[in-house]
Structures are given as structure tokens and as C-alpha cells.
């Protein structure tokens, strides 16, 4: 056969029992498959994102519905959704320069000027890099704060978990936790998305009297700080513990919550 300059023609010309062909064909097929999969993923991403966004909003609404008396309060105040404000995480101050409507936390977490790396020791939730600003959702009536909702995220056993944590006005009691996005093991870790499990959360305390963050997911939970984990999903539970510890701590919403406590709404 004539020499050909294209390498894969030479590959096809090899005998099928040649080990080089076995390796070559595997690599070639894997490469083509990878190309196809990544192209499809990139093309389909915007379409999927629309659904994910809608789902997130629906979960937030559903969470508001589970909170006793909240809807009534909102109807009374003539509002149908919470007020969104953008917080500078490090100072804990609101940042009025950023328009909440156009702020995209996912984009911000990627931009070099709008995000920062987390040092390995201070990254229990496995996020690597977070945005410097984050949205918070507030419900205020006649100058009194009724609810604060914080978006939190962290690595579970095999996927990024995103959730909304709603706090009572004392800022130390969980009003609700809603998982809005996760891809944990179906039937095991993925049960964190079930209402039955999320219903365990309301009423749990976050910090002890010394201000240490105590809330955690554990097997055989006892006391005001512990939430019962799902059997077989220990690492998913640990992921949620780390996620809350991180976001309620100094690197996350800690400064904002401190400021809220000191100076009020």
C-alpha cells in the first residue's frame, strides 16, 4: 500500500491484531466521543440553564410556602417575593453599586475581578473559588426583619449542592433549608432533596453561646444543633455540614450576619 501522510489512514491499514491498532483505535474513538459529548454539552447548556433557573425560583417559592405565616405577611405587605440585596462578603456591607437584577453569582464566581481563591485550609466546602459578593434575600416589614435567606453551596459526595438557608429574625435559628440543585447518588444522597428530610431543619440552632458554629448533620442526632443524616449518605451529610460551616463563617456570610445583629436591618 502506498505511503500516506495522514496518520489515521496508516492506523486503518494496520492489521487488527496489531497492539498499536488496538491502542490507536481506542484513543481515536475516545477522542471523537469526547468531542461529540463536549460539543453537545456546550450547545445544550443555555437551554438546560433556563430550567435550572426556573427550578431554583420554584424551590425558593416552595420554601416560602412552608414557613408558617410568611405568605400572610407578604400578602399584607403587598409583595410577592423577597427583596434581593447584594452583600460584600468580606465587609458584610450592602453594596448599592451592584444592581441585584443583573448580578449573576455564577458569572461573578468566575471573573478574576469579582472573585477570589480560597486557600486550601479555609475551604471546607470544596469550592476553590467564590465571588466576592453574594445576593441575600430579605423580608422586612415596618422596619422589622422577618426572614433572611442565604444562598449556600458546597461539594457533597459527588456533586455541587446548592441550597437556600432561611434564618429566623434572631439570625441563629434555621427557618428552613431547601436544596435547589444536587446530583448525589439517586436513592441515597439524593434524598436530601426530599421534603421529608428538609422538614427536619426548621428550629435548629446555629451557634452556641460563644458564637461557635455548631450546626451539623450527623447520624443519631441529638440536641438543638444536630440534624439527622440519611443512612448511607454520610459524605453527603458531611458536605452539607461543611457547606453551612463555611457560609455562616468568616469567609462566607459571617461578617454580614454580625453586622445585621449589631446594627439591625
Amino acid at each position: 500500500m502506498a505511503e500516506t501522510p495522514v496518520p489515521w489512514w496508516r492506523l486503518f491499514a494496520m492489521a487488527n491484531d496489531d497492539p498499536r491498532k488496538a491502542v490507536g483505535m481506542t484513543v481515536l474513538v475516545a477522542f471523537v466521543a469526547a468531542l461529540g459529548v463536549s460539543t453537545a454539552a456546550t450547545v445544550l447548556k443555555p437551554y438546560q440553564q433556563v430550567h435550572v433557573e426556573r427550578e431554583r425560583q420554584a424551590r425558593l417559592d416552595a420554601m416560602l410556602n412552608t414557613l408558617p405565616g410568611l405568605r400572610g405577611l407578604m400578602v399584607e405587605a403587598g409583595i410577592d417575593t423577597l427583596e434581593t440585596r447584594i452583600v460584600d462578603l468580606q465587609s458584610g456591607q450592602y453594596d448599592p453599586a451592584i444592581d441585584p437584577a443583573s448580578f449573576d453569582p455564577d458569572e461573578a464566581a468566575k471573573g478574576p475581578a469579582t472573585s477570589r481563591d480560597l486557600p486550601p485550609g479555609a475551604d471546607p466546602a470544596g469550592l476553590k473559588r467564590i465571588a466576592t459578593h453574594a445576593p441575600v434575600y430579605l423580608l422586612e416589614r415596618d422596619g422589622r426583619l422577618h426572614l433572611v435567606v442565604l444562598p449556600v453551596s458546597g461539594m457533597g459526595y459527588q456533586s455541587l449542592i446548592r441550597a437556600y438557608l432561611a434564618l429566623e429574625p434572631d439570625l441563629n435559628t434555621v427557618a428552613a433549608l431547601t436544596i435547589v440543585e444536587q446530583a448525589e447518588t439517586p436513592g441515597i444522597g439524593a434524598r436530601i432533596a426530599e421534603p421529608d428530610w428538609q422538614a427536619l431543619w426548621p428550629g435548629h440552632r446555629i451557634t452556641d453561646d460563644d458564637g461557635r458554629i455548631m450546626i451539623r448533620v450527623t447520624q443519631g442526632a441529638a440536641g438543638p444543633y444536630e440534624v439527622d443524616g440519611i443512612s448511607g449518605a454520610t459524605r453527603t451529610g458531611n458536605g452539607i455540614t461543611a457547606m453551612l460551616t463555611f457560609w455562616l463563617g468568616d469567609q462566607g456570610f459571617g461578617p454580614f450576619l454580625d453586622r445585621l445583629r449589631e446594627r439591625g436591618f
Binding site: A22, A33, Q48
Partner: peptide, 24 residues
Amino acid sequence: HIPHSVRLIIQITIISALVIVMDG
């Protein structure tokens, strides 16, 4: 052009790529 020794790997690669796209 599928060598006998790696035929299952190649089949699985093609099938799973299609499944991922379908799922997407």
C-alpha cells in the same frame, strides 16, 4: 477496524457518548 481485544471498550465508549448526549 475494531480490534477484537478492545471491541467492548470501543462499543461502550460509543454507546455512552450517545447516552450522555441523549440525557443532555
